[in-house]
Design a binder for these strands. Structure first.
Lengths: 151, 151
DNA sequence: CTTGACCTTCCCACGCTGGAAAGGTTCAGG
DNA sequence: CCTGAACCTTTCCAGCGTGGGAAGGTCAAG
């Protein structure tokens, strides 16, 4: 099996298969004399594992860990479960963020006429002064708040 | 106001402000003789607009369009609404994908003992043979990078 | 043998962000 | 007035995961 067949069989593009090999996620494939990569059933299985994990939104790093556990006959299922649950938590957080965004946007859109006139609560909200200000950047001299006290 | 102050005032890092300028999202800032960027109230407002739009998950391209509309006195609110609604639809799609993933993972985790033993339905499912195989040659995005809320 | 499909490597791009290097500017305090 | 800290400047490098393409080698069918 060449890389193209492996790609078709697993749903991962040849490009990505090479990339995964290069970055060490999967081991280097065997080669023919001429340099073609050759894939065997075992490799295909691994690739499928990777694809499914990616479909579930696992990061490459997590997949690496899962692959290690997958191959480890003496693994403890608790280790796997921990990874999975951590991932679920991360996904849920993202989902909440998305929900918030959607909620805000829907609210704004609902209050927007959507006609030929220029008045639009979406734009005016985005451009307004007072909405949570955020001060995440740490500075030594604390007085950056909007007035040029210097220069 | 220098770039550092602008960063503190808007919650966008100096690095990103320069990047936005470089890529043309925002106009080039005024400069002092010595080359320091100088920001005025108007610029700060624009930056805040950008940050809020990013917080709502808009892409840079969309923000560009919104900015143009924002500055256009004669815009039609319908145009804004269209962008917002399109974005909502995209976010909702991502949310559905996330929900599916979470559902699957929770189901798998629920059936995993999570003890010292190696048996684990999570791993065996990922590694199993038969799950929709097909030939999804172009499986684009199983959830790309765009769904992180900023900051 | 030719052709076309396939393979190889290598480099570029995207969006967004951070880090670091090497150097100039500004200003407060000694 | 000088020094040092904090700030600014540009430039380059890295990463995620993916795609695109160029330049070239290989293989199997006609």
């Amino acid at each position: 099996m060449n890389i193209g067949d492996a790609a078709a069989a697993t749903g991962i593009s040849a490009k990505m298969i090479r990339y995964y090999e290069e970055t060490g996620l999967i081991g280097a494939a065997l080669r023919t004399y001429s340099g073609y990569r050759v894939y065997q059933d075992k490799d295909i299985q691994t690739l499928r594992f990777v694809r499914r994990a990616r479909d579930l939104g696992f990061t490459v790093k997590q997949i690496e860990d899962l692959l290690t556990l997958w191959r480890d006959r003496s693994r403890a299922s608790a280790d796997v479960k921990t990874i999975a649950q951590g991932h679920v938590a991360a996904l849920q957080k993202k989902m909440l963020e998305l929900q918030e965004m959607i909620g805000t946007l829907e609210h704004l859109a609902r209050n927007c006429q959507g006609d030929h006139r220029p008045d639009c609560p979406i734009l005016s909200t985005l451009g307004s002064e007072g909405v949570q200000e955020a001060v995440p950047v740490k500075r030594k001299s604390a007085l950056g708040k909007g007035f040029e006290a210097r220069r």
